[in-house]
């Protein structure tokens, strides 16, 4: 037990060191930008994972919240407000939208929850697409400048990467605390045994509501990072495909784990941006990966590989070697 703990600490130190020095050994602005994208989508996926993994509530409308925060930032900047005000308002708008989502969709669970969040996501997409006087319609909103907190200009790729990394690490730490907190434990309780939790005196609805707000906050953070990264926001970002993509990150990596959504974000972003340079049909590949993971590795890559690893390292398990070929 002790040796696995120190192994884990060692792995975390290596990972953080690798991430912190990434611009040094990863040649080229292109790859640094890809890394920034992975990190900001990892924040998004971690936010969705609060609901999908820990609360057992699958949302297909999260791109709407992500987009609302991004639009709020862009719109505030367009009105001439500073970056600080814009970011604060965007966070508020993101969490408030999630509160509305939660009040409407927490009436049901399972397929019902999926459908209500999907409908809400489509409403937000429809508004972004058609409410041209507010959102600019298909032309979207441009964000001409990235902020420069304390004189540290984010307009260069490396600086932006480091800022994203700091936000990402903060979110990971907060997630780790959340998962271990009484609220996190209660949330998992409502996922596995809602009736018993109710009988034990827990307010199941309120616990789920707080989880939603937390998820909304992380989603808004990633939406703000996104709009500063691309310096542009358009309705495409809110489409069902985007919600499906981030859900794929969570499901592929492993819902209900801390590492899973991060791995999933890496996988999807790499397939999307890097592989798409070589293969034209990345969307097909993405769909195929999705189907394969749901059917073959339903608990996701991280728990799946951990299981395979345990099987392989256990001495009396010669059969496990055969299944090692999985991605």
């Amino acid at each position: 037990m002790n040796s696995t703990m120190s192994l884990r600490v060692f792995a975390i130190i290596i990972a953080v060191a690798a991430l912190a020095t990434l611009p040094l050994w990863m040649g080229g602005i292109y790859y640094i930008n890809v890394a920034s994208q992975i990190l900001l989508y990892a924040v998004f996926a971690l936010g969705l994972n609060v609901l999908v993994g820990y609360a057992g509530l699958t949302s297909l409308g999260h791109a709407g919240l992500f987009g609302v925060a991004a639009y709020a930032t862009g719109y505030m900047l367009q009105l001439g407000y500073g970056h600080t005000e814009s970011i604060l308002v965007a966070l508020l708008v993101g969490v408030a939208s999630m509160a509305v989502y939660a009040v409407l969709s927490l009436r049901s669970t399972g397929i019902g929850f999926i459908m209500i969040t999907l409908a809400l996501g489509e409403i937000l997409w429809g508004l972004a697409y058609r409410w041209i006087s507010l959102t600019g319609g298909d032309n979207g909103i441009n964000v001409p400048k990235r902020p420069a907190p304390f004189g540290y200009s984010l307009s260069n790729a490396t600086n932006f990467y480091f800022t994203t990394l700091i936000v990402f690490l903060l979110v990971v730490v907060v997630m780790a605390i959340f998962v271990r907190s009484p609220l996190g434990a209660a949330l998992r309780g409502t996922r596995d045994q809602p009736r018993r939790m109710n009988a034990l005196g827990y307010h199941v609805w309120a616990i789920r509501f707080y989880a939603c707000l937390f998820s909304g906050l992380l989603t808004a953070v990633s939406g703000i990072l996104f709009v500063y990264y691309t310096q542009f926001i358009s309705p495409q970002t809110l489409a069902l495909t985007s919600s499906a993509e981030v859900l794929l990150m969570v499901i592929a990596g492993g819902p209900g784990t801390l590492l899973g959504p991060i791995v999933g974000a890496g996988l999807v972003v790499i397939v999307k941006t890097v592989v798409s340079g070589f293969i034209e049909r990345w969307n097909f590949l993405l769909g195929a990966i999705f189907v394969a993971i749901v059917i073959l590795m339903p608990d996701g890559l991280v728990p799946g590989t951990t299981r395979l690893w345990r099987l392989a390292t256990r001495k009396r398990a010669p059969v496990a070697a055969k299944t090692e070929g999985a991605p």
Partner: peptide, 10 residues
């Protein structure tokens, strides 16, 4: 549902 979603991408 997720399988049908993946198939729709494909």
């Amino acid at each position: 549902v997720l399988v049908t979603l993946g198939l729709s991408f494909m």
